[in-house]
């Protein structure tokens, strides 16, 4: 089971990031969540949502949603090589199990843009 995104339903409220951040850090921030709202192209009204898992990244961009293996992503850029370590800044999604909660981003999303499958 994993968290998936219906990108066109998303309105960019960032509540999913806040809920995920709360589950990891028991505080409110948007800097350490496993689910990430992409809102870097504001003038174009372009935004999407991604979810990091141990093995891949689910990318919900307005043009379509897809899971992308981390290796494939790296191939788009330069490779860190086999010795590269995953960094701890953002944890992979654990479906909120470590906090003993139901998946919080799915529960909080007001637009039902996130779902489990």
């Amino acid at each position: 089971m994993r968290v998936k995104v219906k990108p066109l339903e998303c309105t960019g409220c960032a509540l999913c990031e806040l809920a995920c951040g709360y589950h990891w850090d028991e505080a409110f921030s948007m800097i350490s969540s496993s689910v990430m709202l992409y809102r870097g192209e504001e003038k174009k009204g372009y935004m999407g949502v991604m979810v990091k898992t141990p093995e891949d990244l689910f990318i919900g961009r307005p043009e379509g949603a897809t899971a992308m293996k981390l290796g494939e992503l790296q191939k788009e850029g330069a490779s860190g090589g086999a010795s590269a370590k995953p960094i701890l800044i953002r944890e992979a999604c654990d479906l909120c199990e470590s906090a003993g909660l139901e998946p919080q981003c799915v529960a909080i999303c007001p637009q039902e843009a996130l779902y489990l499958e």
């Binding site: 066109l8 309105t11 960019g12 409220c13 960032a14 509540l15 806040l18 009204g45 935004m47 307005p62 007001p110 637009q111």
Partner: peptide, 12 residues
């Protein structure tokens, strides 16, 4: 094109 929320707003 799309609707946008302000921060943490369930509406848009």
């Amino acid at each position: 094109h799309r609707h946008r929320s302000c921060f943490a707003c369930p509406c848009a």
